[in-house]
Amino acid sequence: MRGAGWTVHGDGRSPLPGAVVRPDERLSWGRTVGLGVVHAVLPPAVTGAVVLLIGFNLAPVAAGTYWPQDQWTALLTLLFTGFALVALRGFWGRVAIFLGLLFGYGVSWLFDRVFGRIGVKHTPAGHTGGHWRLDLHRVGDAPWFGWPSTHAPAFDGSAVLVALPVVIVLIAENVGHVKAVGEMTGDRLDSVLGTAIAADGGTTVLATALGGPATTTYAENIGVMAATRICSAAAYWAAAGFAILFGLCPKFGAVIAAVPGGITVILYGMIGLLGARIWVDNRVDLGNPLNLVPIAGGVVAGIGNVTLRITDTFSLSGIALGTILVLAGYHALRLAAPAHLREREAPGGG
């Protein structure tokens, strides 16, 4: 299968070293210099930590939003999805995540019929409260087509200055995502780092010019790639097109809002472990305090959603704060570290 400069051999299932072949890896002088800067600023110790904290930062979402809908439905969905990802082959293996969703819907529907609503409180006056595991009442009320509202952007100098440092976080996040995909496909993908960052910046400019939010690459999609092992660029072009079409359909959004929990536990964990794989593949020495200290502080701050209040109206928390602690801490400690610690850093820092 071909798409966007990628050739995926066989059935398109990765990761297999050599499964993804980039036809032209020759880089211009400008790209070579740019990649040198990126690798110097974002070495594997930093990018691995960023990917790891992105994945594990989502753990509270799985635990606090999806799992409580019904813990037994979530557990059964998790177990079935894990079985499908490991045991199924061919077409069914590629759609294992989708099968997990269908399984979750089916179990939720069955439990509603057998056990009734969940969370019902028994009072002297009767039964009150509770909710259905599979609540589709909003689907019928939602329209088939909805156009997003747009408005002209407003500029505030102080807000711009406050937000600019966050751009560094987004660049680090993008680089971490590209590195994570590279680990899955067996291709370093260095030649497209600049393209990915520029595309993210360009789409952010376009979205905010119409009054929308800033854009970014989504770790959830990388989790799906890791789970299904489908890394075909053509498949994701098609997925992007369908996402745009379905984004204009509020009824589809209502269906997605009723998705049962369980699958997210696997997907978010896979994202975090891709960060650890970056450390392993690049032989990052976690016994070296130069790596260990900033990673330890940044990862805990990112996963724990620690908040740093800078002013009454601006604060840093979660992924943003964790990334800054890892990035700034690593380079600050490197300046102060003795030579023998700097020499212990991982070789081949790609």
Rank of each mutant, 00 (worst) to 15 (best):
I324E: 12
G304T: 12
A301Y: 09
G176P: 09
S232R: 14
W279F: 13
T208M: 04
Q71W: 09
T215E: 11
L53H: 15
A339F: 02
V255P: 02
G12T: 12
V20H: 00
L58E: 06
I171L: 12
G10R: 10
W279I: 04
A125R: 00
G90M: 02
A320D: 14
G261S: 06
A196K: 00
T73P: 02
V95E: 03
F242G: 09
G129D: 02
L76N: 04
G36Q: 07
F314I: 00
V114A: 11
V166F: 05
R89E: 06
T228Q: 14
G55A: 12
G322W: 15
E25K: 10
G272V: 05
Q69I: 03
G201V: 00
P165A: 00
F145A: 10
W147D: 07
V139H: 08
R13M: 07
Y218W: 14
R229P: 11
A337E: 08
T204V: 11
V50I: 15
D187H: 09
A159C: 02
M270F: 10
P23N: 10
L274G: 00
L327M: 07
V95N: 04
I197S: 09
G34M: 07
A84H: 05
S149F: 13
G349V: 06
F111D: 06
R283P: 05
R138V: 05
G275Q: 03
Y66G: 03
A163W: 10
A198M: 13
G3V: 00
P260W: 06
I263H: 06
L248K: 01
F252N: 01
G104Y: 01
V61M: 12
R277S: 03
T195G: 09
G302Q: 03
G48F: 01
F242W: 14
I278G: 04
V265D: 05
V167S: 02
G318Q: 12
F115H: 13
W144M: 14
A198H: 07
I310V: 15
V255M: 10
L110E: 06
H127I: 01
V61N: 14
H340S: 06
P289I: 07
P213R: 08
G297H: 03
F83R: 13
G261R: 05
T73S: 04
